[in-house]
Amino acid sequence: MATAKGKSVAATPKKAARKVRILVGKPGLDGHDRGAKIIARALRDAGVEVIYTGLHQTPEMIVSAAAQEDVDGIGLSILSGAHNYLFPRILQLLREKKMGDVVLFGGGIIPDDDIPKLVKKGVDRVFTPGTPIQEIVDYVNERIRPRK
């Protein structure tokens, strides 16, 4: 793992033009925000600019916040079982708004069987319970770059 990290640093020696901006979103009606808040805080501590939507957002609200804040990635936390509706719906709205290059990732209570289907539809990465925070921070640092 140390080498992988070293490589990624070596591959991007010059400083990014601006900080990466990530929208951490809680779509749907579930109130479990422990994970979302921990991720938001850890990303902020790692130097990422974080916008947290708060709870109970519709897909429309999330995409409109993403457009307004001009984010590079969206991380969704879903523990309600509605992931098979919410992820694809948000992807669809992003494409409609010509924001298909915004990286969509997420996590929560998501059965293994559903993950390949979500990835096939365009979700970049799905994290399952028990993922160390650093793994998610590393993922964001390595995968997501400022869009412009």
Binding site: G28, L29, T58, S80, A82, Y85, L86
Partner: peptide
């Protein structure tokens, strides 16, 4: 309600 889409009977 539109707010219920995808969540009916789930949790």
């Amino acid at each position: 309600s539109p707010r219920a889409r995808g969540e009916v009977g789930m949790c």
